[in-house]
Computed example of a mutant assay.
Amino acid sequence: MTRFLFDLAFWLAAPFWALLILAPGRRWTDRIAASPLPLIPVLAVHLALAVPIFPRLWSAVSSPELGAFQDLMTVDGGAAAIWAQVIAWDLFLGQWMYREARRLGIHPLVMGPLLVLTVLLSPIGVLLFLVLRALRSRTAQGNATGRAAAGPSAVRA
């Protein structure tokens, strides 16, 4: 059962990732990216895996030490519970990144690879997105400032 739930966590999230990456800008993709509902099935899998091992899981997260996490990984369901948590968190981050990219006008051909990287190695994907977001925000602020400065003088001229 643990192996099935481990696999299920990924397969429940995969269709939503596919939408974010392959169908950007579609109305239904935007609606799904704005909804917490895609997370619920993955979180349910996490709970199904976490409840039976809750004392060990709680011990590992409430007093984080490497040894406690190593022990948790040896418990049946321990690695799968952490995996389902990571899958849910990655999807949450992917949805946020998608919405931010749409808001900032970042092209889908730039975001697609970043979202794939986030699925595979979320810390790297998110870090690169944060850099891109900061650069894009700075550029957008500079353009807005330039337009505001050009606007009144163009009217006076």
Results as ranks from 00 to 15, higher is better:
residue 2 T to H: 09
residue 3 R to F: 05
residue 3 R to M: 06
residue 3 R to E: 02
residue 4 F to S: 07
residue 4 F to E: 09
residue 11 W to C: 01
residue 11 W to V: 08
residue 11 W to G: 00
residue 12 L to G: 00
residue 14 A to T: 08
residue 16 F to N: 11
residue 16 F to W: 14
residue 18 A to C: 04
residue 20 L to Q: 00
residue 20 L to V: 02
residue 21 I to D: 13
residue 21 I to T: 09
residue 21 I to A: 11
residue 22 L to N: 13
residue 22 L to Q: 12
residue 22 L to H: 14
residue 24 P to S: 10
residue 24 P to K: 09
residue 27 R to P: 10
residue 28 W to G: 05
residue 29 T to E: 09
residue 29 T to M: 05
residue 31 R to W: 14
residue 33 A to V: 09
residue 34 A to S: 14
residue 35 S to G: 05
residue 37 L to M: 08
residue 37 L to I: 01
residue 37 L to Y: 07
residue 38 P to E: 03
residue 39 L to W: 04
residue 40 I to S: 02
residue 42 V to F: 10
residue 43 L to K: 03
residue 44 A to F: 02
residue 45 V to G: 00
residue 46 H to W: 07
residue 48 A to K: 00
residue 48 A to R: 00
residue 48 A to C: 04
residue 50 A to D: 01
residue 53 I to W: 03
residue 54 F to D: 08
residue 55 P to F: 11
residue 57 L to E: 01
residue 61 V to L: 06
residue 63 S to Q: 13
residue 64 P to C: 03
residue 65 E to P: 03
residue 65 E to Y: 06
residue 66 L to H: 12
residue 67 G to L: 01
residue 70 Q to R: 12
residue 71 D to Y: 09
residue 71 D to F: 06
residue 74 T to G: 05
residue 76 D to Y: 02
residue 78 G to A: 01
residue 79 A to Y: 07
residue 79 A to Q: 02
residue 80 A to T: 00
residue 81 A to T: 04
residue 81 A to S: 10
residue 83 W to T: 04
residue 84 A to T: 00
residue 86 V to R: 13
residue 86 V to Y: 06
residue 86 V to L: 09
residue 86 V to E: 06
residue 87 I to T: 01
residue 88 A to W: 10
residue 90 D to W: 08
residue 92 F to T: 07
residue 92 F to G: 11
residue 96 W to I: 15
residue 96 W to P: 15
residue 97 M to T: 13
residue 101 A to H: 02
residue 102 R to Y: 10
residue 103 R to C: 10
residue 106 I to H: 04
residue 107 H to K: 10
residue 108 P to G: 02
residue 109 L to R: 15
residue 111 M to V: 15
residue 112 G to T: 06
residue 113 P to Q: 05
residue 115 L to P: 02
residue 115 L to S: 09
residue 115 L to E: 05
residue 122 S to P: 05
residue 123 P to T: 15
residue 123 P to I: 13
residue 124 I to R: 04
residue 124 I to A: 08
residue 126 V to T: 13
residue 126 V to E: 03
residue 127 L to E: 06
residue 128 L to Y: 02
residue 128 L to G: 03
residue 128 L to Q: 04
residue 129 F to G: 00
residue 133 R to C: 13
residue 135 L to C: 08
residue 137 S to G: 09
residue 137 S to L: 12
residue 138 R to T: 11
residue 140 A to R: 15
residue 141 Q to L: 15
residue 142 G to N: 14
residue 144 A to M: 03
residue 145 T to G: 10
residue 149 A to P: 06
residue 150 A to R: 12
residue 151 G to I: 14
residue 151 G to V: 13
residue 151 G to D: 15
residue 152 P to S: 10
residue 153 S to A: 09
residue 154 A to G: 07
residue 154 A to D: 14
residue 156 R to F: 02
residue 156 R to L: 01
